[in-house]
Amino acid sequence: MGSLLLGVIAKPDLIVFLAAALVVVAGGIGVISYRNPVHSALSLVMTMFGIATLFIEQNAQFLAAVQIIVYAGAIVVLFLFVIMLLGVDRAEVFSRERIRAQRPLAAVAGVVTLGEILILGHATWATGAKAATGPVGNSSDNVFKIAQVVFSTYLLPFEATAILLVIAVLSAVYLSKRVVVNVDEALEAPLEVASSSDEESFDEVTTPKTSSENDDEVYEV
């Protein structure tokens, strides 16, 4: 036991890996087990930081920085904004189930997934050949190597991501636009859309009515 402990301490890589793996798994369990979504989001940040540590451990410094900036800095903050904005930071009710025994079945499915991945990991790889995109640099020229490949071999996908981001921005703007379906309903209750709680108003607002129904209503009013 003592020699094993000494062997672990003599390998700093192993210590970093074990600590980061602990952080990653603890954060992952926290995401799926905290009842409050805000706590889940903070656990997600923990997982992201653990993975960024593992990236650095594997000589992917650029990706580690991007991971922290994009995920922990932007995406999780976006999650938190939505949680706070919608006021959905209430604990969810676990007792009411629409599908019976969904939770045990989900746990079984997760364990089966893990087993499948681990079994497949023992299979021989389809192609064991080393790909020829470019060599991994040492710790000092990681950004240089990535840039070299992105701007030569993967130039077209890189430009496609620019188009993708523009489309994402446009769709976000369009989705967050407030659309009024029925003019007469909006005149009757302008704030009803935001605060309606029963299902009936939701159905009325969203389901498009045929023109004849609309005409009837208008004439009745």
Partner: peptide, 13 residues
């Protein structure tokens, strides 16, 4: 693989 399975369980549960 463990982290992926945790994500699967989270989506299902």
């Amino acid at each position: 693989a463990i982290l992926f399975s945790l994500g699967v369980i989270g989506v299902l549960v």
